[in-house]
């Protein structure tokens, strides 16, 4: 097998293993908490007999590993269990919300990733000058501000004062695309501002690192303009660390949106999670935790594989 395929297969296998380990952790974590599902359903006033009956009916008396494999088997076949608080099927209620979260993350990423990379390139081009300091300063400021503050500032100006966008990002099924975009404009902007600086500064640092190389000097001595030297000769060699940090931020856009979703009352995964943590709805927390872990691991595997593919030594062995 070509070494590159072997490496990629290794990464994928490692990702699956990691996800299994995480599922064990999540399951174990919810077991350590005092009380169990039967207790939660029946509440404080339950009689011991009723508790025992329910435990028997739900299989809670089985050993932990049996329950784990039952749960895992359910997850693998698309059955995430039933929410305690509402009695609804978790998979069904998550589907729409996951889609909403991905939709928001997608548009935030479409704006923030190219913007961060272009700003990073510009910062390198004008390094240590006014433009570099301005870009770095603004990006750092936007990241240092907590997202709830950014969220409320955006709402104040663009929803209350200017009334360009709605302050509450309600979306529903069958909503026309244009309206949907208008609804997510503010949360997407808030998310962009949060993740921008990290990616931009990493792009800048990774490219600056490469700028010391002899081949960058060669390119300069061919008469290429400063920006083309960076774009054609420095950037392709800095791509692996950049992809890594981009993927970390994409993961944040999906799993870290809790606060932003709550501020804008956006019906995504974050809000769903917060609601059910408050209600101590363990099956839902487990399911959402597993999905978030899967997203995180998946994106990091993509980053690893992209870095492998970006390396010409692996792509074109001797």
């Amino acid at each position: 097998m070509a070494p590159i395929l072997k490496l990629i297969a290794q990464r994928l296998a490692l990702g699956v293993l990691l996800l299994l380990a995480v599922s064990v952790l999540i399951f174990a974590g919810t077991q350590i908490l005092p009380g169990d599902v039967a207790q939660s359903i029946l509440g404080q006033s339950a009689t011991p007999q009723a508790l025992a009956n329910l435990r028997e009916a739900m299989g809670l008396n089985d050993p932990a590993y049996v329950r784990y494999f039952k749960w895992l088997g359910g997850v693998l076949t698309g059955d995430l269990g039933t929410a305690l608080s509402s009695g609804q099927d978790i998979a069904t209620s998550i589907k729409g919300r996951l889609w909403n979260t991905l939709f928001l993350a997608f548009w935030a990423a479409i704006v923030s990733v190219p913007l961060a990379i272009i700003l990073g390139l510009l910062a390198v081009r004008y390094r240590n000058g006014f433009v570099d300091k301005l870009i770095s300063g603004l990006a750092l400021a936007s990241t240092s501000l907590p997202e709830f503050l950014i969220g409320y500032v955006l709402v104040f100006f663009f929803a209350v004062k200017l009334q360009w966008f709605p302050g509450i990002s309600t979306v529903y099924e069958g909503m026309p695309f244009g309206q949907r975009m208008q609804a997510i404009a503010l949360p997407a902007t808030a998310l962009t501002l949060v993740v921008l600086a990290h990616m931009m500064r990493m792009t800048r640092a990774a490219i600056l690192n490469v700028m010391q190389s002899a081949y960058v000097e060669t390119a300069e001595l061919k008469g290429l303009s400063a920006f083309n030297v960076i774009r054609k000769h420095a950037f392709p060699n800095a791509i692996a660390p950049i992809i890594n940090v981009v993927m970390l931020n994409l993961a944040f856009l999906i799993v870290g949106v809790v606060v932003v979703e709550v501020i804008f009352v956006y019906p995504g995964m974050g809000q769903y999670l917060v609601d059910h943590v408050a209600k101590r709805d363990v099956p839902v927390v487990q399911a959402v935790g597993l999905i978030f872990a899967a997203v995180y691991i998946g994106l990091n595997i993509i980053a690893d594989i992209a870095a492998i593919i970006a390396n010409p030594r692996l792509r074109h062995p001797k």
Binding site: A214, Y215, T218, K222, S225, H233, N237, P312
Partner: peptide, 24 residues
């Protein structure tokens, strides 16, 4: 100077192994 470099005057570096871009 950019019009001169690579057109009228070219440069051969000490270590070609480092002076070629590994990505192209």
């Amino acid at each position: 100077i950019r019009k001169l470099r690579g057109r009228e005057v070219c440069y051969v570096a000490q270590s070609a192994a480092a002076a070629f871009n590994p990505a192209h």
